[in-house]
């Protein structure tokens, strides 16, 4: 598994020269599930794109097991699940999964097993446009795990789904993740979702993005979306401890005490 160190000293978009991310650093230990939480448009996706090597226009460094990511990119298995399913509409479900796999690993049984894991055993030869939005995300989830990732990047992958559909997908994610435990960076603005899934929450401020708070989740695994009461109590506890945390990230006002503590 993979330990990740991310340091973004400065990320500025050249089009409007606005600084998106400044002096942001965090580490993720091997097999850890970390959620990045922050309001829309604070550069969470940008951060994931940097780790996913889709964006190399930044000052800073991403390290994987203590060596530079860009130099070792071929030796790590990294998956990325986007906000949209992003399936190739001209390929069937099976072909979409096969597309990202290495040829010698793409056995039919393995793909069928993946489809079973997301309860799509019958849809292997369907085209994505014939599937519902929730089913397309399940395919995207199966695709993300098809390469047996060591590092999995997820950018609000269950956004804009209704609650039951979303919970079903979160449960799939939990059960598949449990098998191999890849390191996950999960971006969301839904705190309850983050509590359900993660080992640790990282709260981000408004632009330029900084870390304002980290919080460990002590709930035992395996977890399920059925345990709403645990999630609620964890959520309430978080709010009692840090009544300012939500307003902090909603309005972008930083909690100075927190920052000072971290520096000390």
């Amino acid at each position: 598994m993979i330990k990740l160190d991310v340091e973004v000293r400065n990320k500025t978009y050249s089009s409007n020269s606005q600084c998106i991310i400044k002096d942001l650093a965090f580490s993720v230990s091997a097999g850890e599930f970390v959620s990045l939480i922050g309001p829309s448009g604070v550069g969470k996706s940008t951060l994931l794109n940097i780790i996913g090597e889709l964006d190399n226009q930044f000052y800073g460094e991403v390290k994987v097991n203590n060596s530079v990511l860009a130099e070792n990119t071929n030796s790590i298995r990294r998956s990325y699940m986007f906000q949209e399913p992003r399936l190739m509409p001209w390929l069937t479900v099976k072909e979409n999964i096969k597309l990202v796999m290495k040829k010698d690993e793409a056995s039919d049984e393995f793909i069928q097993q993946l489809l079973c894991d997301v309860e799509l055993d019958d849809s292997g030869s369907a085209f994505p446009l014939g599937l519902s939005g929730g089913m397309q995300r399940r395919v995207a989830l199966a695709r993300a795990f098809s390469i047996r990732p060591q590092l999995l990047l997820m950018d609000e992958p269950f956004v804009s789904l209704d609650l039951p559909t979303g919970n079903r997908l979160r449960d799939y994610l939990m059960s598949i993740w449990q098998k191999t435990k890849p390191t996950v960076i999960f971006v969301t603005h839904d705190v309850r979702e983050a509590i359900l899934l993660s080992d640790r929450l990282i709260f981000l401020s408004n632009k330029p993005t900084k870390i304002i708070k980290e919080h460990n989740i002590k709930l035992s695994r395996p977890r399920s979306s059925a345990n709403q009461s645990d999630i609620d109590s964890e959520f309430n506890e978080l709010l009692i401890q840090h009544p300012d945390i939500l307003s902090g990230y909603v309005t972008g006002i930083q909690d100075n005490n927190e920052t000072k503590q971290k520096i000390a």
């Binding site: 996913g52 949209e84 992003r86 597309l99 990202v100």
Partner: peptide, 27 residues
């Protein structure tokens, strides 16, 4: 562009990227 990003981040070979992701969009 979004589909091309899938190809990049999953490190598809140039050939596969061209055949399965790029050219079908030109069909």
């Amino acid at each position: 562009h979004k589909l091309m990003q899938v190809a990049y981040t999953f490190k598809l070979s140039r050939r596969t990227m061209f055949q399965k992701v790029y050219i079908p969009q030109l069909y």
